[in-house]
Write a protein that binds this DNA or RNA. Sequence first.
DNA 1: TTGAAAGCGGTACCAA
DNA 2: TTGGTACCGCTTTCAA
Lengths: 339, 339
Amino acid sequence: MRHGRHAVTIYEVAGRAGVSIATVSRALRGSRQVAPATRQRVEAVAAELRFRPSRLGRSLAEGQHAANGIVFPDLSGPYYAEVVLGYEEVAAELGRSVLILATHDRPDPVAKVLDLAGRVDGMAILGRTVDDGVVARIADSGLPLVLLARPPVHPADTITTDNDGSARELVQHLLGHGYRRFAFVGSPDESPDVTGRYNAFRDCLQAAGLVPPQPVESAFNVAAGYAAARDTLTDRQQRPDALVCANDEIALGALEAAAEAGLAVPGDVAVTGWDDVMAARYAGLTTVRQPMRELGATAATWLQERITGSRVPVRRQVLRTQLVTRSSCGFHEDVEVKE
Amino acid sequence: MRHGRHAVTIYEVAGRAGVSIATVSRALRGSRQVAPATRQRVEAVAAELRFRPSRLGRSLAEGQHAANGIVFPDLSGPYYAEVVLGYEEVAAELGRSVLILATHDRPDPVAKVLDLAGRVDGMAILGRTVDDGVVARIADSGLPLVLLARPPVHPADTITTDNDGSARELVQHLLGHGYRRFAFVGSPDESPDVTGRYNAFRDCLQAAGLVPPQPVESAFNVAAGYAAARDTLTDRQQRPDALVCANDEIALGALEAAAEAGLAVPGDVAVTGWDDVMAARYAGLTTVRQPMRELGATAATWLQERITGSRVPVRRQVLRTQLVTRSSCGFHEDVEVKE
DNA sequence: TTGAAAGCGGTACCAA
DNA sequence: TTGGTACCGCTTTCAA
């Protein structure tokens, strides 16, 4: 914009080429109703002047930002980064820019999200970043919206990973190994994903005739997981023999706590996570792999359809997950496949 | 924009409030030259209509996007994600949106970067995403620019981490452990960071009276590191006893290769990396920790100064790094401090 | 204190 | 095939 001496405008190109701005616009955007000679002259002048149409002027006239937004809680840990990357990749292919907004724990996420909404043609919202009311309000404004890893809000599209299925698969696997005294480490109230995982965990245990425990609260980081697991594991009376942790970072902390308590993994206690972060492999952690990149990519694809006006009905999709068994949940014969 | 029935404009607010759009604008942006009664009325109407000024209209009139861009090669691995996060955090605090662009290996990064340049008031460029010519061209247009982990291009500001110092520290440390047959795994031509690391590695060995080897080429991932290290370690004649890898992922691959070759780490061979990714800790990998978040944060801060018009001279800064010694480079008495 | 109007930089319709 | 011009939605100067 205001940079440098001043940006070249369509008026200057028109002046130098001896035509009207309308003709410049037509020539440069490839309209067929321009005389070849004229087009050539305009193109030459535009190139010489290094003319680049102002995004702002263009967007205002076209009523399109040619940009998508994505809102997420954070970017630490590979989870969100991968989602964003998948989203950006598809959006870029479609010729759209991507605006990001990390709400983190900063004040007034609502204002920031609404601001973002005013800069884009469509938006993806990840997890518990803004509440249903705000989502509904934005959706009502007509902005195409897709919700990721978050409960649906009509009429936005929703994509989640299969928390229910993966939790059940995990519990069944642990039951198969003979574990019976389960604990769940994580905070269901903090994340929709964890809510789903805990609920399935609970139901699955109940179905197996066991009494499901209350969750042991823990934030999504190694230190918190360590502290939570330590407290749980030192309860000699009711020491659990299987810690189902809400994600890998918590699980990694739990592994430390177990080691410190002198407990063998998986002999004395099994530990599992979610996400399959790189460290999980080195820690021998059993976990659940999720198609995060695909989550983002699908979001961008769906948004594009709504932005371009397809009258698609409201959609929901649950992406499949994959149980990755390593040493932390029991002894296996099968070795992990090398990719 | 075009969503929903139609967005509320300043004209409708003006109409309902019985004033001109000029007055609405003044009232809403807090100009003091508005009668209290008028302001109140305007605010009431605006709230009732849920009026939100169009970002596009505003930006066009103000000549400001109120947005920053950041260009990076990729987002996989914690390195770039952390930089982006630090950048976004500061930018958001300053009331600016953030547009991201991952060049990856996709075609025509230049066009995408130029497009991005037309959407922001300032931009950070990370690593080898676009060449000097493009950088110079953008800088010449007057767009405030800060280069990260990349060679300087006048007159853009530049911030790097201390590759030179960290490489020397690493080599000295390994020399202290008695290692003498060094290999460098990584591709100096692929990344400015690696260039700096390799050069310092080479100089440092030379200064120690050793003959520095040519780098063993490897991309930035575990599989490539594994392959490169395997080839190097099976050279029985000249088998190196210290693999200085250009980043942690390569190093993790090297650790695998060593294990597979039946070589003890650090007994037979030492392995080191850069970045201190989470997995490094679990793999016992000696590495270099870099202030990535700070890199991004500083970039956003510097940009802001230029955007707001400060006539600061061209700046360069080298951020300090920290050697993190673990078991892969030799036996240490000191245990890693728990954070 | 307020309003009229001139931009900001394009797009696209309507005539010529 | 081309030009004139009416927007797009807002900010800000200049008058009143």
